[in-house]
C-alpha cells in the first residue's frame, strides 16, 4: 500500500525490489545535486524535497572533508538511532553519479540494507537506458522539471 514512485521509470522496479528485500521504511534516489529521481514511503512532497536537499548537502560536505584528507571519493555513511537507522550512499550509474538515502527500522539492519543495496546498484545499472546528450539547463526548465518531478512522485 505504501507508494513507490519514480520520475525516471527505469528506476521503479529496482527500487521496489530493494525496498521489499531490505524492509526499508523510506528510500530516496536523487542526483548528487538533490534532484529527486524516485522515492518510496514519503507522503509529503515537502518531506521529500527536504530530505533530498539534506542528503545532497551531507554528501557534498562529507565529500569535501574526504577531499581534504586525500581519501578516495565518498561512498556511504550510516547512523543507527534508537528505532531507526539512516544510510546514505553515493554510487555510479551510466546516467552519472546518484545518491540513495534509506531509512530503516528494527525489522531490518544496516547489514541487510548494505547487502541489498549492492544488488540495487547492479539492477539500476542493468535497467538504465543509454545516456541522452547533455542539454543546457535553464532556470525555466528547472522550475518545470521540478513540478513535473513532483507530479510523478506523488501521482498528481
Amino acid at each position: 500500500m505504501t507508494q513507490t514512485r519514480a520520475v525516471e521509470p527505469w528506476t521503479l522496479d529496482p527500487l521496489q525490489h530493494f525496498v521489499g528485500e531490505s524492509a526499508a521504511r523510506l528510500a530516496l534516489l536523487t542526483t548528487t545535486s538533490g534532484q529527486v529521481i524516485a522515492q518510496h514511503g514519503f507522503t509529503r512532497a515537502v518531506d521529500v524535497m527536504s530530505a533530498a536537499a539534506l542528503g545532497a548537502a551531507i554528501a557534498a560536505s562529507t565529500s569535501e572533508i574526504i577531499r581534504m584528507l586525500q581519501e578516495p571519493a565518498f561512498r556511504m555513511l550510516s547512523h543507527q538511532g534508537q528505532s531507526h537507522g539512516i544510510f546514505l550512499a553515493r554510487f555510479g550509474t551510466p546516467r552519472g553519479p546518484m545518491l540513495a538515502l534509506v531509512v530503516y527500522g528494527g525489522d531490518s539492519s544496516i547489514g541487510l540494507v548494505q547487502l541489498f543495496f549492492e544488488q540495487f546498484t547492479r539492477d539500476l545499472a542493468a535497467a538504465c537506458p543509454a545516456p541522452e546528450p547533455a542539454k543546457p539547463v535553464l532556470a525555466a526548465d528547472f522550475e518545470r522539471d521540478l513540478h513535473e518531478s513532483l507530479a510523478a512522485l506523488f501521482g498528481r
Binding site: 500500500m1 507508494q3 507522503t43 509529503r44 512532497a45 518531506d47 506523488f154 501521482g155 498528481r156
Partner: peptide
C-alpha cells in the same frame, strides 16, 4: 478500494501537507 483511496489521500496531502485529517 484501498489502492484508489491511497491515491486520493496522497494527492490530497500534496495540496494539504499539514492537514491532520489527511494523515
Amino acid at each position: 478500494r484501498l489502492d484508489a483511496a491511497a491515491k486520493v489521500a496522497l494527492a490530497g496531502l500534496e495540496h494539504h501537507p499539514n492537514l491532520a485529517d489527511g494523515h
